[in-house]
Simulated scan of single mutants.
Amino acid sequence: MKLGVFTVLFSEKPFEEMLDHVKQLGLETVEIGTGGYPGTAHCNPAELLEDEAKLKAFKKAVDDRGLTISSLSCHGNALSPDEAFAKASHESFVQTVKLAKALQVPTVTTFSGTPGAYEGDKQPNWPVAAWPNEYGDILKWQWEEKLIPYWKEMAAFAEEHGVKIALELHGGFLVHSPATLLKLREACGPAIGANVDPSHLWWQGIDPVAAIKILGKQDAVHFFHAKDTYMDQDNMNMHGVLDMQSYANLQDRAWYFRSVGYGHDLKTWSDIISALRLVGYDGAISIEHEDGLMSIDEGFQKAVSNLQQVLMKEPAPKMWWL
């Protein structure tokens, strides 16, 4: 496994300065934003695809520092009823897949997306209750008319380019759990897999170790985000896990994101890393820092320090004692 970072964290730094900063802290790989919510501060796919010299210079800057690119990330919502945003998200995904092939990057990370409740709706709709029955009807329509048709086509497109799609299991989107990921994968093929981010599993009540094992049995772990979550039981008793308060309201929220080791202890994180090894995942451990209590650099460095203690970098040995 290689320790890396989702470089949107350092969007204010120029590309090569960001690479130097990451290298100095002992990281080995970078996940780079290519559009959608992550933006294009460090990588504009359209520009690189149109200019071979710029493409080579981009790759050389990474190679010269002994780094690799673990993933290109274009998290958006190509199913959104907002036609302009849906189109931008789709075009960003298509360009990102093409760029991933050109750069020999194995994985593109994104969201599954969420459509409206019906044709002509104006906003995305995320059903979270089985009753009243209307919610089930909405969910069935979303999957059958929007989600599966779109990702069946995009999975085939990604396979043609030799790229895997890692859908982040994130609340607010139709694919947010092992079950929803595996349901979509069954309908669309093995190019579809999970970007496992424990921070979004914990608040849903899902054990990340169990999720990794479930997904791993289907070879469906395509990527991993290292981010933690603190669960405030007193506030959860008041608001429940579907807490719609601002993330800035830390004192009253039921849960909020933390740097690795500040929501769950390192034993928990060592169990997660071990589960990844158990199911054969040997990709990036990509740090995503959204801790409202720490600065960018301090939160990032704490995550690096804590993960270095539990990461497994050497290949598993033969069992010499057998």
Rank of each mutant, 00 (worst) to 15 (best):
P208G: 01
V105Y: 09
A194V: 12
Q95D: 14
G35C: 05
V196S: 11
P208F: 02
D297N: 12
Q95F: 07
L215A: 01
E314T: 09
G116L: 01
P198M: 03
G36M: 01
V94I: 13
L3T: 07
V108P: 02
E134N: 02
M231D: 05
L293V: 11
K13V: 11
L9S: 09
A316D: 07
I287W: 06
A191Y: 07
A155N: 15
H264Y: 05
L139D: 07
K227N: 04
L103Y: 01
Y118G: 01
G263R: 00
R65S: 15
Q251L: 13
R253H: 04
W321V: 14
Q95E: 15
H42T: 00
D252A: 15
Y262S: 03
Y150I: 00
K140D: 10
L242C: 11
R277Y: 08
D297M: 10
N77L: 08
K267M: 01
F6M: 13
L19T: 01
T34V: 12
G113M: 04
L139F: 14
A46H: 14
I138F: 11
K60V: 02
L72Q: 00
W126Y: 04
I148T: 13
G26N: 11
G26I: 11
G39H: 02
F224W: 08
T110G: 02
H161L: 01
L250S: 04
V97G: 00
Q218V: 12
L55A: 05
A130C: 10
S89L: 13
M231G: 14
